[in-house]
């Protein structure tokens, strides 16, 4: 299971907002696929998966504020559940 989270990179990581989900629960995910797009004070950023699997539940909704470092979803491996 891979946890997809908002990385705390750079200084301006307050007020991170989830802009868009590109994968929905149950979708097949390949390594490198962009899962979500977030927006910080300075820029927008793609959040990608490192491993392949099946997309889990959205832990945040579009326009939610997400504290840096927090997990927004998990990618499930074979036989795994949330």
């Amino acid at each position: 299971m891979e946890e997809i989270f908002v990385p705390a990179v750079g200084m301006a990581m307050d007020n991170v907002v989830l802009l868009e989900w590109l994968k929905n629960p149950g979708d097949t995910v390949n390594a490198g696929d962009v899962i979500a797009i977030i927006e910080t004070d300075k820029t927008t950023m793609d959040i990608a998966a490192e491993t392949a699997g099946v997309m889990g539940a959205h832990k945040y909704q579009v326009n939610d504020e997400v504290p840096a470092g927090n997990t927004i979803a998990v990618i499930l491996g074979p036989g795994e559940s949330e």
């Binding site: 989270f5 990385p7 705390a8 990179v9 750079g10 504290p67 840096a68 470092g69």
Partner: peptide, 10 residues
């Protein structure tokens, strides 16, 4: 830990 925001400043 840094990516998770536990270590401030990178």
């Amino acid at each position: 830990l840094s990516l998770r925001g536990k270590i401030p400043g990178g």
